[in-house]
Structures are given as C-alpha cells and as structure tokens.
Amino acid sequence: MLRVAIVGASGYIGGELLRLLHGHPRVTVVAATSDRLAGRRVDGPHPNLRGHTDLCFVGHDAVEDAGADVLLLAAPHRETMGRMAGYLTLAGTVIDLSGDFRLRDPGTYAAYYGVPHTAPHLIPGFTTGLPEWHRAELAAADRISVPGCMATAGILAVRPMAEAGLIEGPVQVDARTGSSGSGASGGPAAAHAERSGALRVFAPSRHRHEAEIAQATGHTVRMTATGVEAVRGVQVVCHAKLAPGASERDVRAAFHAAYADEPFVRVVARRQGLYRLPEPKILTGSNHCDVGFAVFADDGTVVLVGALDNLVKGGAGGAVQCLNVRFGWPERTGLEFPGLHPN
C-alpha cells in the first residue's frame, strides 16, 4: 500500500482527499495534519466520514515522522512556496494543490498573487497536474502542481480549440462558482445571510485563474468570476472568435479528437433536452468535467462551456487522478462515483 500524508487536511479540499483516499484500494493515509485540530478526530470537521475512519489529526511537524511515500499539500496559497523545500525532503512524490507552483513565470505569479515568489528556482521542477494534456510527463513526475478549479474547467474547454488553431485573438471567460470555492474559512462574505440569493461578481477582472488558462492555451484571457448560491460547482462560459473558415463540424471534431478516450471528460453539445450544455449540478461528487460548445456562424464566434465539481475534478479528485497516473494505476481507481441526479 502506498503511504500518503495530507498536509492541511481540515479544509474542504482536505476533507475530499480523505473521502476519496479512504475508498482507494492502493493507498493508506498515514497522516492528516492540522495544527489547530491536532489530536482531534478527522470526522469532526468532516462528518461525512463518521463510522468510516478513526484517524485523528496531527500537527504539521508530525508529518516528518509519518514515513509517507507521497505528500498531498492542501495548504494555503502564498504560504506553501516558503515550505516547499522542506516538503520535498519528506516524500518521494509531492502533489501540491495550492496556487504557488502553477504559473511558470515568477513575475506573472507576483502580478496575480500580490507577493513575490519566494522559491522561483523550484518552479521548473513541477509538472502541471492535468492528465488530459500532461499524461506522459505525469507518469514520471515527482513534483506535481494541480490547476485551480476554474482554470481546469477553462483549460479543458478552450485548449482543444487553441491546439487545432480554430480560434484567434483574446478569450473572454465568465466563471461561476459555488460557496465552497471560498474554503472552510471564507470570512464574512461566505456567511449564509450574505451569500444566499446572491450573484456576487467578486472578481470583475484579473482573477488568478485567468493566468493559468492563458498559460495553457497561448491566448490572452480576460476573466470575470461570480459567486452563485450553489455550494459546489464551477461553470465557465468562454467567448472566442473563430479562425477564418472554421465551421461547427471542425469544432466538434476538435473536441472529440482531444477527449474521445479520456475517462473523465465528456463532450456535451446537444440541440435539445434539459442538459444540452455542461451543467455542474449533475457532476456533484464526481471527477468528471463536461465540456461543450455553441457556434454562431453569423458573427463568426464560438461559446465554449466547461463544468465540474470544484472540490473533486477541480481539486482533490484531480490530485488523486494524477496520483493514479504517476503510479501506473487505472485512472478511475478511487474515482468511480458518477455524480447525482436529481440533486
């Protein structure tokens, strides 16, 4: 059994890692860290795990004695980079879910995160944790950086078009996310009285995930992000100009060529029915990302849509999928749950 330690296990992503890895047949969790909750059972903040585990949190320092083969880091942005050199000495493989090693250019990181990168020399050693586009590299990677939730949806929706040369110019991304995207300590803005019924544009421009989508697609990206009343779920609606001569048939062919054999990406672009385009509601708890499109030939534009569960495919599930790729296991291992309907 592969020995895995989760650093920062008390938050929503940490809880999803615990849930998914509890059902993973090739993994045992040897440590789940939280300085604040050290000594307490993990099924306190994660009550869905009651009756499934007797694991207790340990302090962050205790991970040094856990003998882990893999570290999964669910620690905060801006803090992880300062501790990364130490983390890399504790396990052969490190999978980071913070934003600190997603961007290849330290200057871009500083522009979007508001602080200088304190470990730029470590950035080149990380592989992007998106198997659909980096599977070969991930199979041999010991340092993996999982993309952000809205970035994952945006990249999976836009990149087939970019790779096929079917769009030109900038891409406008309109992203919507549920309240769990703010984390377990989201502050006053996440309170029910403030969040319920709201459609809050919390990032009218320059959300940090726009830099990840631009990096992955080679296109200038302008992104807005809106908080919606859902707890889980991300949906991105991306507008782009079609390249001269590109048709709807070309668009459909590009999507199917990119994702025909992918276990977790489904192309959803139908002309009728309740779920004609990707809808995060039916993806709750699953590691799927649905992508789709609508072509408007009269003005030469295309709308690209991506949807996922931000805590699973957009976070913990993406990390577990990377873990499976890295160790040569079937990618669906521990990730078989198909989502709920109705929900």
Rank of each mutant, 00 (worst) to 15 (best):
L242F: 11
V94Y: 10
H60F: 01
T33C: 00
F202V: 04
P330K: 00
A191V: 01
P188R: 02
L20H: 13
A136L: 10
T226F: 11
C56F: 12
A191S: 10
R50Y: 10
G67D: 08
L274F: 14
F337R: 03
R270Y: 12
G129C: 12
D174E: 12
T220S: 08
R271I: 14
L340G: 00
D96M: 07
E79P: 07
V4F: 11
A260Y: 00
L21W: 01
C149Y: 14
A316L: 02
P116A: 04
G82M: 04
N310C: 15
G92L: 01
N343P: 00
H209C: 06
G315M: 01
R40H: 14
V221H: 03
T226K: 05
I213A: 05
F296T: 10
R195L: 11
R78V: 15
G51M: 01
T108C: 12
G245E: 06
Y87L: 00
G92H: 10
C56I: 15
N343A: 07
G14H: 06
I213M: 08
E210D: 12
G273N: 10
I282L: 13
H219E: 03
P25C: 12
V58D: 03
M150E: 10
D100G: 13
A294H: 14
A184C: 02
D174Y: 13
N324M: 12
V267K: 06
Y275I: 11
P147D: 11
G8W: 03
W329N: 04
G39R: 13
F202C: 09
C322F: 09
S179I: 11
V115Y: 05
V291A: 11
G51R: 05
L72F: 02
K241Q: 15
G328Y: 13
L138I: 03
T333D: 09
T28R: 14
L138D: 01
R83G: 14
G148F: 07
V302L: 09
A307Y: 13
T108Q: 01
M84K: 04
A254Q: 04
V58N: 05
T80L: 07
A66P: 13
A75H: 09
P76R: 05
D69M: 07
D174T: 06
Y113A: 01
H24D: 08
D43I: 08
E229W: 01
K281H: 13
N343M: 06
L308T: 11
I213R: 09
A257F: 12
G23K: 12
P263I: 06
G197P: 12
E194I: 03
R19L: 13
A253C: 07
R208N: 14
H46R: 03
L17M: 12
R249S: 15
T128I: 05
N287W: 05
L73Y: 06
A191Y: 09
A297Y: 08
V30D: 08
P76K: 03
G148Q: 10
L335Q: 03
M1E: 02
R252T: 13
V295C: 14
F337D: 02
A75K: 04
A153T: 09
R332V: 15
G15P: 10
F126Q: 06
I13E: 01
G14L: 00
V320Q: 08
P147T: 09
L242W: 06
A164W: 10
R195P: 13
L55N: 09
H52N: 07
I13P: 08
L277I: 14
I123Y: 05
